[in-house]
Amino acid sequence: MISGSIPSQQIPSQQISDQQISSQPALPRFAAQTLLQAEQVHKGFTLHAQGGLHLSVLAGISLTVNQGDCVALQGASGSGKSTLMRSLYANYRVDSGNIWVKHQDSWRDLTQCQPHELIAIRQHTIGYVSQFLRVIPRVPALEVAAEPLIETGVSKSEAFAKVRSLFTHLNLPERLWSLSPTTFSGGEKQRVNIARAFAVDRPILLLDEPTAALDANNREAVMQLIEEKKAQGCGLVGIFHDADVRSSVCNRTLTF
């Protein structure tokens, strides 16, 4: 095993403290309708098991997302679409660049946020529909999907009602609602994931192939949900392999 030094952004002492961030005023350079602005994002991976091989994936990507936008990330497999998407969710830690997000009327740079701030930003501001659903085996689908909404302080009954209506809209059979999604099919799991993310009113939504495992009917149902979010003034960023879905819901494209 090769020993290496820790990249600088992992060292907590170099991170900005809460107070310093809180005292920053809303920065004037962002337009009023802007929700997210990524600037000159660089991200690579160092594979220590492969002799420290460095793969550069994002080299200076910038992206602005405004209210009502749905931006498609387009490009061949391995071109870095998912890497950018995951960086926008702070799932990946970027090497350099800034990712500004409007969180409850103040601008935060995700690359400088402390873990507990990221938790709050994900809770209220950025949603993410992943391709995978990771759950504790015993928990029923209804509770899995309602969990993020309950965590924002919404009552259980209200959260369940919202998820039930989303499940109905997504044609998820009612007999599945009280079962754990661990045994669900790919398409069923995906709809639980979509309901989980769409139940919460967050201004920014990231969609990683939200219709990949769905049939035509359910694809249509998801497209409707996306249109609703756009109409509400949300900004969306998505990876869509289905060209029809992409051309129908997206108003802009970022090509890799």
Binding site: P7, H48, R86, R93
Partner: peptide, 21 residues
């Protein structure tokens, strides 16, 4: 402590050789 962060950051994008291993 060789690495820290949000759980998904550390597990999905491990940076330290030991965490990667």
């Amino acid at each position: 402590v060789v690495e820290q962060g949000l759980t998904d950051q550390v597990l999905d994008d491990p940076q330290h050789p030991y965490t990667q291993q």
